[in-house]
Simulated scan of single mutants.
Amino acid sequence: MANTMQFDLVSPEKRLASLEATAVQIPAAEGDMTVMPDHAPVITTLRPGLVRVSAADGAQTQYAVTGGFAEINPEGASVLAEHAFLGAAESRAALEGFLEDARKRATEAEAEDRDVAEKFVADLVHLLEAME
């Protein structure tokens, strides 16, 4: 069994991380999951949340993501995020902008789409609270 795995985090804007990790917590759409070396292959969608990485050198880092998907295999995990942030001040301002837009879309959503839109708003609120 390997002690580390490759972790990559990319967004359309840039690559935020590429490192050896011992564990990665991912905000999967079905619920939070922890990925470790030799994990079974999985592809999952992401909800807004924090990706927490335990690096091989012991460093702990967290990234805010607004959604996307993750591909997991025994050798590592790749997260392809819609938007991802590392800095707290920069990410908070951007996420508050996403939240304002999401609230507007939720109020304008058709009845059949309103639940999904309101869930996205709730996930963004929870993400902002987790960052405090």
Rank of each mutant, 00 (worst) to 15 (best):
L95A: 00
I43K: 09
Q62L: 08
G67V: 01
A56C: 05
F85Q: 06
Y63Q: 06
L80E: 08
L50T: 02
V42L: 14
H39F: 09
A84G: 02
L99Q: 11
L99Y: 13
E90R: 15
M33A: 05
M33F: 01
Q60L: 13
E90G: 04
D113H: 15
A40M: 10
A122F: 00
P41F: 07
A77G: 01
E90D: 15
E110C: 03
V125F: 01
A93H: 11
V53R: 01
A109R: 11
S78K: 13
I72E: 07
A59Y: 09
E96C: 05
R52Y: 08
G87Q: 10
V121I: 07
E96A: 01
T44E: 11
G58S: 08
V79H: 01
L50S: 06
E118C: 07
A40C: 00
Q60A: 14
L86T: 14
G67I: 08
E82G: 14
A94P: 04
G67R: 04
E110L: 14
L124E: 08
G76Q: 02
T34L: 03
S78E: 11
K104I: 00
G49V: 02
T34I: 13
R52P: 09
A122N: 10
G97C: 03
S78Y: 13
F69L: 13
F85I: 02
P41K: 09
K119L: 15
A84R: 12
K104R: 13
A109Q: 09
A122P: 05
G76M: 03
T44M: 04
T34N: 08
A109D: 12
T107M: 12
T107W: 03
G68N: 07
A64E: 12
A89S: 09
V65P: 01
G67S: 06
A102K: 05
D123G: 03
P41C: 03
